[in-house]
């Protein structure tokens, strides 16, 4: 049996990879995908802990996370499409409208 900490560490590694993707990539869509990766990493720890504790609650949370992720993807990608239509770019460091 793999101990629970293995699952959690794997989750942490995946999460950090997601963080690095958000920070290092400039393509907004890839940043977005990195965010999905982070969500999945957290989902993994939820499922692992649900299994560990013998409680379904963690799995239900994951279900909600999936629903929210779907909503987020729909709206987020729509926003990215709009931005591309207006700015001809989706590079994060060229989109600097949100400053003074």
């Amino acid at each position: 049996m793999a101990p629970i900490s293995y699952h959690l560490i794997l989750s942490g590694i995946l999460f950090t990879i997601g963080v690095m993707g958000v920070l290092l990539r400039r393509n907004t869509i890839i940043i977005f995908m990195a965010i999905e990766l982070m969500l999945n990493a957290v989902n993994l720890s939820f499922v692992a802990l649900a299994r560990h504790l013998g409680s379904m609650d963690g799995q239900l949370i994951v279900l909600f996370v999936m629903a929210v992720a779907a909503a987020e993807a729909a709206v987020g990608l729509a926003i990215i499409l709009m931005v591309f239509r207006n700015k001809e770019t989706i590079n994060a460091d060229e989109l600097k409208l949100m400053r003074w």
Binding site: A67, A70, A71, E72, A74, V75, L77, A78
Partner: peptide
């Protein structure tokens, strides 16, 4: 989800 669907369509 409904709001997201509507929002995505509007956007």
């Amino acid at each position: 989800l409904l709001i997201a669907a509507v929002g995505a369509v509007v956007l």
